[in-house]
Each structure stands twice: as structure tokens, then as C-alpha cells.
Design a protein around this nucleic acid. Sequence first.
RNA 1: GGGCCAGUAGCUCAGCGGUAGAGCAGGAGACUCUUAAUCUCUUGGUCGUGGGUUCGAAUCCCUCCUGGCUCACCA
Length: 529
Amino acid sequence: MSSGHEAAFWADEEADLLDPQTPHVVRDSKTPSGPVPIGHLRGPTISDAIFRTLRSRGVDARFVYTIDDYDPMDAASMRLQAGMAEHMGKPLFAVPSPDPTVAPDFAEYHAARFIALFAGLGITPEFHRMRDLYRSGALDRQIDLILRNAEAIRQIHKSVANVEHPEGWLPISIICENCGRIGTTLATDYDGKTVAYECRKDYVEWAEGCGHTGRISPFKGNSKLLWNEQWCAQWDHFGVTYEEGGKDLLTAGGSRDRSNAIYREVFKREPPLGLAHEFFTLGGKKMSTSKGVGATAVELASIYPPDLTRFLMLRTHPRRHVEFDPGGTTVPRLFDDYDRFGDAYLEEPESDMGKTWRLSQVSPDPEPPGFRVRFQILADWLQIPSVRPDVEAEKRKGARLTAAELRDLHRRLELARVWLDRWAPDEAKFAVLPTAPDVSLSDGQRRYLLAIKDLIGKVHDADEMQNQLYEYAKKTGLVDANGKPSQQAFAAIYLAFLGRPNGPKAGWLLTSLDPEFVCKRLDEVGRPR
RNA sequence: GGGCCAGUAGCUCAGCGGUAGAGCAGGAGACUCUUAAUCUCUUGGUCGUGGGUUCGAAUCCCUCCUGGCUCACCA
């Protein structure tokens, strides 16, 4: 439908790069070494969106996700934890689980958590654990190829990234037969069947080797390819054609450049395409859970509805950074935006906004959005005890809510409660003051407050109360030039109870409170000075 | 030093070759009902700078400035 000169939706642009006649494999991966920071959700969500786009075009596509549980434990934060120091440098699958009742080892513990997290967001790729790939020998052919070309690879590291490895270096880590560490070993001398290795005390800063030397086969799980080479091996094994990534990797002279060069040179294949996505920042700073800046993905995803989380990841073009502050008015604005995109989907599903909305849904083939109540309104409702959101929403819609609409309403209410509690600015909150505030009112306003005492305890319906308040304003003479009730009347009520000149619908407010309390307050504030 | 991103109305951003846009905020008004909602109208910008290409540029090219991220160890 687009002529080719028009700017296309980003997911379409990416999909356009791939030949629809051939099968495609979209890949992503993660090292299971800790909780997922919120920003790290962007990659998988983008990959999923592109995967879905390919699928919806009828392209033969797979979405492969590898769990890098053969990586060495190198997290600096872990070293300080009790009992963890001795495990530094070991492969993650060999590090003890933080909670053995949940998962048998460290890697699986964290993997299980992000797999569940992804599933909740509708991201359900084929998961492959590196331990299975290595141990089964699935990558042995690639390992052999890489080891035979070690010298060429060493040269590529040198020319592309200016990284110089020692002569005789092999791009592989052996699991030390003596101490079980993988991050501390240097391998050399591949003879086609075995390699020599040494577990060095000071090979890396973050772990200490045992000094063992030996000779062993690098196959069937005894070793792990180094990062760049492992990347190539997986591309080759799965036939990966598309892999996006963070800009930390996809930068000139960066990791991906090195892997691309190796893949072309050694594997004689064209590396996958893939865009580089920008990061989430908070106050201009990169989010970092270790520095206490930002939130973990599980935390946010447990609070936000999944489609809102996806929307947050997808509404901004991947190449642009997202300034994300979970506090303040972010949530209501995000939800307003989300609803606008939902409306766009109803009007024109093929618009960029419509597509973004569809890709934000957990289901790849979603129902169109139904009746929704604006988030900000729900936050107000929650602060007025007499309002029953289900009933109020039905009044608004003028019909019963469907099951899906009711579910959506309740998810919004849940988030609104959290928002009011944690993030809402004071302007968004109102609370009935426990004691009469010291506010200055006109004589007319005081008379009005005393007059409406008649209604308290007698009128129980909020709408009727609202009408009566209006009538009493007229009776009391609090009218403007046109004979209509002046704002002064209602302002008096808000000032008396909330200490500010505005608030929720006055009828709601007054019928929500204990009549005795209301009368007392009206007396206190309304009595002549 | 290399790479990437951003700089458009008070705020958040969209627009990415054809007479400057939206939402919110601000102002005025309508609905007998303050606030909110809904609707109508409205204020507000020399589109970071300087060049270039073009009949025409916020939009393409180059320079520079500002802010931010990122790589140059490992993964």
C-alpha cells in the first residue's frame, strides 16, 4: 500500500529488508545472571514485533532465543555476597541457586524468571539453553571450524577492533577439570581432537584460577566459545537472518562488527541484518538497577498491564532513546497515549499508530479495543468512597460492560491504586482534612455552608445531592451575573473539606462522608466570624 | 578518539521535500450541575547554528554548537 517512497512503519521497514520467499530466523539472547532491568525488555519486544510482522506477512519465520548459561559468573556485585566468591569464574549453570526450591542452579533460577516474564508479555520464542547446545555436540562442527581458523580470527580481532590476543590463542574457554572454572582458562594448540589449556590465577580480574594445566577435547560441552565466536556458531547453527541489538553491541568497531567479519571470513556466510536500538534513560542517565536508578522489569511488569509494557517498548522508534521516569504523571500520560493509539487502530488499523497498538497486545491477533475509561478519571473515582467504578463505568458507557471491558477496567484500577500510592503528584490527590482548615470565606459562602446542612443525612443519592447543592446556591444568592450558581458555592465546599478550591463532584463527596462529621465541619467553617 | 540519538509552542512529542501540527497546560464559551468529562473556539513557535541542493527544506547534504548514550576489557 505504501509507494516505496513514503516513510514506512519501522517494523515494516525491517521486514522489508528480508526476502519473503525464504525462511527466516530472528534471534535474541540473554545471559541469566540476575534480574532483568526494564530497559532490557526493549530488545526482546522489538524482536517479537518484527517476528510477528514477518509472520503476519505469511513469511516462514522462527524466533529463537538462547539462554547463555555457559557464560562465566563475572558480576562484580556477586563477589561481595556471602559464599559467592568461590564461584566467581564458574559457568552460570554450575553456580548454586539462590533458591533451590525454585530452580536447581543459578542460571536456571534467573532464566526461569525471565522466561515467565516474557511469557506474561506475549513473547514466546523457542528457548535454547547453551548447556544443551554444547553438551549435545550441536555446535561441535562450528567449534572445529573456529579452532582451525583461530589465527585468522585473531587477526580480525586485531584489525577490526584493535584487540590483540597472544599468539597461539584460541577463541575458546575450557571448563577446568580441577576447579570447574571457565572464565580463567587460556586454551592453545588445537590438534584437531584436543586442546591444551591452563587455568591461570590472574587471567581475569574478577576470578582466580587454580593453576591446573591439562589437555582435553573441546567438544561435547567441555568448552565454550568466546563471545564473538559463539555468536557466529549460533548464527550458523540456527541459520539466523535477523538479529537486532542494543547500540552497545552494534557500534562501529564493536562486538557485532567483529562477529560479522569473522562470520564472513570463516563461515563464508552473510551475517544477519538487524537494527541497533537505543536505551532507556532516566533523567538523561542510563538506567541501572545496581545504582538504584530505574526499575527492574519484573517490578514494572508486575505493576503495569502487559500491553502497556509492550506499548512503552514499541511506541518509540527503536533507534530513539526513551526517557522513562516511572514516577510523576508518566503512567496517566502513557495510558492516554495508549488509548489514542487504540482509537487509531479502530479508525485505521494499518496506520503506524494502529499497527503499534496491535503489536502492543499480548495476543498477535487481538480483539479491537472496547469501551475504556480514562486512567485519570479512575484515579479520581478511587478517591471517593461512594463511587463504585463498575457501576459508574456502565453509566458512562450507557450499557453493560463486556467481559473484556470489565477486565480492562479492573487492570486500570489496580494500576491507578498503585499510582496514587507511589507516584501521583499532590495535585492529583485529594484527601478530606481531619480538622477544619483555616480558610477565608465570604459571608455568602459561610451562609451557604450552613444552609446545606439541611441536606446532610437526608439526601443520600449523589446526583440528587448535586442538584440540591445547585438549588441551594440559588436560594442563598450565590449566583453570578447571569443568575447561575457561582463557582463560589462549590469552592466553599471544597475549601471546607479539602482545603483547596476544587475537587471531585461535590455530590459524591458529601454523600460519601459520615453525616455527623459533615454537619460538624459545615458548622465550624460556616459560622460567622 | 570511533559510533549512535536528541535539540520543533510553557511541557511531552508527531511531522521527515510542498503554505508550521497534536495532546496536556493557559485563555474564552456551551451543556440548568464547581472540579472532571464532553463539545466549540482561542493564545502561543524566525522548527539549535551557519552554509548548500531545490521553484520550494523542520524535512535532503555539509559545518558547527549543546545535551545524552555507547564502544575502544569481558560478555
